[in-house]
Every structure is written in C-alpha cells, then in structure tokens.
Design a protein around this nucleic acid. Sequence first.
DNA 1: CCAAAAGTGTTATGTCTACACCCATGG
DNA 2: CCATGGGTGTAGACATAACACTTTTGG
Lengths: 258, 258
Amino acid sequence: MGYPITANVSERQSAPPSLAISTVIFALRTAEGESRPSLWLPLVRRIREPFKGQWALPGGPLRHSESLQSAASRNLAETTGLNPRYLEQLYAFGGLQRAANCSPAVLAPRVVSIVYWALVQPTEAALALESDNVRWFKADALGSASARDLAFDHNEIVAYALWRLRNKLEYASIAYHLLGEKFTLAQVREVYEAVLGRELDPANFRRQLKATPHIVATEEYLQGGKHRPPRLYRYTGNTESFSQSQPNPDPSIRASSK
Amino acid sequence: MGYPITANVSERQSAPPSLAISTVIFALRTAEGESRPSLWLPLVRRIREPFKGQWALPGGPLRHSESLQSAASRNLAETTGLNPRYLEQLYAFGGLQRAANCSPAVLAPRVVSIVYWALVQPTEAALALESDNVRWFKADALGSASARDLAFDHNEIVAYALWRLRNKLEYASIAYHLLGEKFTLAQVREVYEAVLGRELDPANFRRQLKATPHIVATEEYLQGGKHRPPRLYRYTGNTESFSQSQPNPDPSIRASSK
DNA sequence: CCAAAAGTGTTATGTCTACACCCATGG
DNA sequence: CCATGGGTGTAGACATAACACTTTTGG
C-alpha cells in the first residue's frame, strides 16, 4: 500500500512514513424497531492487505495540492458519497504498533494517519450509498472498550472520536449539525440524549437552549404528531466550523453566561 | 492506510508530502526588572532555506522507528536541551500556503507538520542552553495577531498553542507542570495570572485550588519572604499526561464537583 | 374526556464573586 | 506598631436540578 516508489535518490534509508487521511463520520439514525435515534457511522471494507476484508474508517492518501481538510472532505465524499456540515481535525495517529495484530506476516509499512471527524444531517445520511463495501454501524458498539474488530487501531480512534464528540457537545453548539435546517427543541434534546447516553429534563433543557444565541424560533409548527404540535426553530450560527484551513480557536463555543 | 475504493497505483505523481514534528515549549520566567513571571518559549534560528536566519519552532523529521510523541520529545531535547514534564499533541498543520512569504523564489516542498506543545519547570528552563541559535522569547509577543516575524506559519501556531494553553488551564490541572515540586498557592495563582493575563482574587482562588484533588499540603513553609511564610503544597496527580502514545481522553481534567 | 408531549413557573441547592476581616512576619 | 501578603468568613448574584403545573393536540 501507500508510498509511491518514487525513484528519489535521497530515499536511502527506509522510506519515510507515508501520510493518510481518515474520517470518523457521525450521523443520527433511528434503527428498525427503536423509538429513539442513535449515533451511527459508515465504514468501508478493506480490499487489500493488511486487514483485507475487515472494516475500516474511510480514508485515503493526501494529494499533493490539497489541504488536509479538503483531502478529508474529498475522500469521504468519494468513499461514502457524503457531504458533512461539520468537519474538524481529530488527531494525528502515528503509533508504531498500529498494524499490530496484522493477520499473517505481512510487514506493513509505517503509516501516519491524520484523522478528521464529521457530522452529517439525517437527510444526507439517508441518501448515502450503502453497498457491500460500505455499511453503517452503531457508534457505541464500535467505540467501547471491548470492541476489537476493526482494521488497524480504528476501534480506538472511534472511541476517541466519540469521547471528543460527547465532550464538545457539552460546551459547543454542534448538535444542530446532526439535524436538518428546521427542528424542534425536543429533537435537539434527542441528539443530546443519543450522544450522551442519558435522559435530560425536557423543561430545563429547553430553557438552556433558548438562552443560547443563534437559536431562533420560526413561525412554523411541526404537524403530524400525536400531540400538541411543537414549534420549529432554526440555527443561525456558523455552519462553517467547516471554515477552511486552520485550527479554529473554536468559533462554535456556546456563549456561556459567565 | 485504508483507501479501498480510490487509491490505486495512479497516485504517483510528485513526491508525497514530507512529515516534520515541531514543538511549542512554554516555561515561566521572570524578566529583568519585572516583579511577576510571564510566559516564554524557546525558538531556534533556521540555518537553511527557506526562511534562513529567521526564528522558528524547534523541530525535525520523524524517524522511522519512533512514535510521534517520542519524536517530539527527542527533538526538543536535541535542539533546546529541555525535558518537559508535560507534552501533548497540538495539531497537524498541512496548509499549502505554509511557505507563502518565502523570501526569494525558493520553491519549498510541501511539508506537513505535526506540532506538539510542552510545559517545563522553571528549574529546567533555567538550565536550558541558550546560544546564538537558540533564544527565549515572550510568548504573548509572538502569539498576538500582529506578530509576523517567525518562519513559515509559526506565528499562527504559537497563537493557537497559547489559546489551547489558556483554554486548558481553565478546566484541567496543568498549571503544576510549570512549577517545581513544591509551591505555594500564591505561585499557582501567579501561573494563572501570567497565562490568562488577568488578576485573580487570592481568597477565592485558594479555595478553588484546595477543593481540587491531588493538591496536598506539606508541613513546610516557604521562608525568606518579607511577610507571613506561606505553606508549601505538592501536586500528586498524573505527572504523565506524558503518557505514552495515544490521544488520552484527558486524565488531567480537574474533577469538577458536579 | 384522556393520554401525552409542549411549554411555563417555582423552589431548593450549589457555585462564583466581591469584599470584610483576622493572622503572622520583617522592618 | 505598621505595612503587606497569607489565610478565613460571609452575603448576594447567578446557574442548575427537580418537579408541579398549565396548554394543546389526536384519538
């Protein structure tokens, strides 16, 4: 895999570590037979050694004239057909034992992976192509301590991404990126409950939300439910933490009243 | 790594981007003529193009059989002689315009930098070798918006590292890594004041500190001051966020009483 | 009318902030 | 005994959590 065998003269020793970009993509889905939505992510099946046949994060090499972020963006579009609303760098993994339990004696070359994480809307996620080599999995099943079935160290990467998502959800306004343009406050609460894995008090939750900026009430109500129709809201904040390039000293932090 | 669908042999145009590791090293120093300590960081002078002669973050290439973290550790030891108590990955920079204002028409090859940040104790920092090619600078002067004198995009990297340090100081127990083994609570407050750039109420600050775990009072008092001798404390928490390898779902987070 | 979600009000509890106050030391 | 930083106490402002309560819809 990996590094082009450039007949570069300076390449005397061993080849330098090659670079790849991968992405952990999160979306909300309601499983068959379940009432509440949960977190899912798409994986692709490896078609070559090492770890041939196992599931892995979508990813690929960094092209010569693209930024890290756009490499991530292009790559996940190519492999899964998705266009995330939110995309942020997660971590650079360069561990040496990354291909530790590599099946036979395939000596895998050293690879440094720069991993991004993304949030996509349910509508996007619904259109996402699913094939024999691309499938969605429940995030918590992959990211728990016991999980050990993905290629490379991808189980740990998923676990870390999950940790980061949970963490960031509590202080930044990112939940809206998992929803459509208009949403009810109860839907936002469902996002929080799905991600954090615990139930939240509806009354207090709605007050907190209404106190945050960039949440504006529309004049529309969601019809079709069994009960009182809830009002729809819209998020008017930076839908671009998708901002080009750099690290972003967190524009999406929820203005806390302190 | 895993690029099942796209990546194939067609990707062998120009040489792949090369990888480098750099580190932003913070230490507390009391400048001549000033009463309060402030944040400083060491830079090295570039001895080759591009940006020859300008100051840059210490860094170097990633060797074949070392982890990213140990590459950072080794590199900053080689260039500055320092052994930090705290070392954490900051960000992977791979922008294309990194060598934008490159002096002449030197066409710089694409470089992806994985940047770490570190905290060292004052005693360490004092021993640090300072030469014609290694010098300490005040952090806020380099990390402000106007600053534009470092090589590559290193001013922005310093600014981001500063942001991260300030941010993390407020929720994690990292201030102790900038102090010696024993310290007074007022010294911890000085760290906070120097990093955050504002004064804190001594009374409230000490209460907050004493409420956090891993701060234990010794039976010793700091003698030699002009006034009442303050009690010395010790930090007994993980001095190893320096933990090998992986991303660490933040062990150093200050246990908040919620 | 009933069930249940939408939405509002109220109270207890805890945390943060400002600031008054006492303690201990060098000069 | 005085100035100053070390250290403790306390009252108000503010945020959070628990839960009672009213409103509005479908059935």
